[in-house]
Design a protein around this nucleic acid. Structure first.
Lengths: 197, 197, 197, 197
DNA sequence: GATGAATGAGCTTTCATTCAT
DNA sequence: AATGAATGAAAGCTCATTCAT
């Protein structure tokens, strides 16, 4: 038991370290020795936890998607309006982009663009279902309650994912004149206006 | 003269071939020999046209941004409402995503995610200014005419870029049940609603 | 412990093999694969010991300079006249040129002529200080004892280094009609005459 | 006739430009395109004058040796003592090292160390005979007149060539605290003392 | 479980030389 | 004589992965 716990902990610490490095430097520019070195661990041992670099990358996206989905789940269970939920989701996303930028950056810089890495194992977004599912629940609820217009789910999902991701990308490029939180009001209003009934 | 023309033509054919390969397989998975082979050209000669792989990638993003900007420029000069312009821009973008998917994919899968490649030479989005400038002109005009709400430009720009890019990404992932054109109506309406006065 | 020893040994065997190849064929004509092949070692592994070809070349000159310096140090501690010391130094140098010609040749054909390789890391002869220091000690002692004329150190050092190196170069070119040891008498007498009080 | 003259002039301008570049950057680091570019000439055309890079390097050493030999020839014809001749030769050499350093550097950095380049065509120092011959004449004359001790020519030649070359090398390394002319007195005295009867 | 030396295929880039124009 | 695009072999170096210890 102790053993298994310890192994699980180490597993997670690998995920978090690799997440940081992949986000900061890109998947291909981050080497397994880089990750092992930052963890004061041997490369050989790292392979005892993850059987390949690709598998590691896939586990990271699942983990990240789960963490983000969890936070949105909390919002979904709140008894507030769709407008307020949108505000909270945007807030969560941008706060995360500020506090743990590596998670959001991972979506943008690793998951988005290294298709070959995720092809075998993450087909059709199964590795990000944790996040998508919650957005879907939010959207269905709000449509059912009559607050949001009934439309194709992907039209709405693309808005969330693309808009929020796009803003974080702009932030990362250093082109946004203000801090990312500054845009929470504007963006949540824009999203609400776009989707409202 | 003849010489220079021929060289310019070859230069462009390199750009287009590299664009396709980078988009399809990613920047790091596409090798210079791959590009040269597809062009029936020697590796060495390719370097007579572009002094490094990074420089080539930068020239491609400039080229792509220019082509896309050009198309939006046409819309900007039309005497139609902002709502109609939004529709046309979305249409252009999605049509392009269908007919020349490599250009849009290049934005998403190469430019967006390989920061280190564009760091020296494309600082602060200068390489995509062709595209951004036109969106800016569209937005300023529509605000001036009172059709769109006056808000931070980046809030609006992120909506365009992120939303459209996000949809194309979903298409590329194979998760969209319908063809990309199907979403033109929804998405242009959502954008208009988000930004209208 | 064992591990470290083994690694140190392998490191030295790389230095010696590379020394031979660089001396025989020149720095630029000797490739890393050449060195690895002669060592029955993979190219990648060689880079586990020396991070670049230039660094390897620098380590070799330090090593060589140390070995040569060591031998002269022995002479410096002997209780003999300056004239006899000069004879011994010339003898050591020429004997080495005969028995381990690669060391002397390395000075002449690699260190002397590939400035760009040694620019970063061996500025101002720090990599050959092992040898220079001993010559300096010899000279200072002999001046102090009144056997040699007091003059600018570099005037004396250039005589040693240039003269001995020049002779070995001539030998290497195949223009010397006699074996190199034949010249020990002449050259040590000439040096002594040049420097004596 | 005009044609031939023009060609000869261009030939010499190639030699001088290549001499500078080879001396400054080394033989292997200097490319044919580099040389052509500095001459505002096409690479193809450069090959009309010299059939290979190696041949060019050989012609340069012949040219350089000739120029240097010429200057020493003047000294040889003077009616002065051997001691004075030595002084003048050292002076010529160091003055040249200061005014046209590329010639001396070429000896040290190109000729000395790229044996493979000069193997076919410059066997046994035939390409530097212009210089050697004059030193030989000087030495024979001075021995005949009884001013210098009769000894193996190479023992004497190595002294000249090695000592002078060594000093210029030290200068090039930036380790000499004074200008190179400062050493003329010391060095010519040392050489004279070494060789005198 | 842990180590890190070893592998070797594969990458980007260079450059002497040629040759059609 | 002059051009410079084209060739292609070969270089230095990287890194995911394995395996003996």
């Amino acid at each position: 038991m102790k053993m298994k716990e310890k192994k699980a902990l180490k597993r997670e610490s690998i995920i978090q370290t690799a997440l940081q490095l992949f986000s900061a430097n890109g998947f291909h520019k981050t080497t397994i020795p880089d990750i092992a070195a930052k963890l004061h661990m041997s490369v050989g041992n790292l392979y005892n936890y993850f059987s390949s670099k690709d598998i590691l990358a896939q586990e990271i996206i699942k983990y990240t998607s789960e963490v983000l989905g969890e936070k949105i789940r909390v919002v979904n269970t709140m008894d507030i309006s769709a407008k307020e939920k949108i505000y909270k989701i945007v807030e969560i996303y941008f706060r995360m982009a500020k506090d743990k930028p590596e998670m959001i950056e991972y979506f943008l810089r690793v998951y988005l663009s290294n298709r070959e890495v995720f092809n075998d194992g993450c087909e059709g977004m199964v590795c990000v279902s944790g996040f998508i599912t919650e957005i879907m629940i939010f959207f269905d609820d709000a449509v059912a309650s009559g607050e949001l217009r009934n439309q194709d789910f992907f039209s709405a999902f693309g808005l969330f994912m693309g808009y929020l991701g796009g803003m974080v990308f702009l932030k990362g490029e250093g082109v946004l004149p203000k801090g990312i939180e500054y845009y929470i009001d504007d963006i949540s209003r824009n999203i609400y206006n776009a989707l409202k009934n």
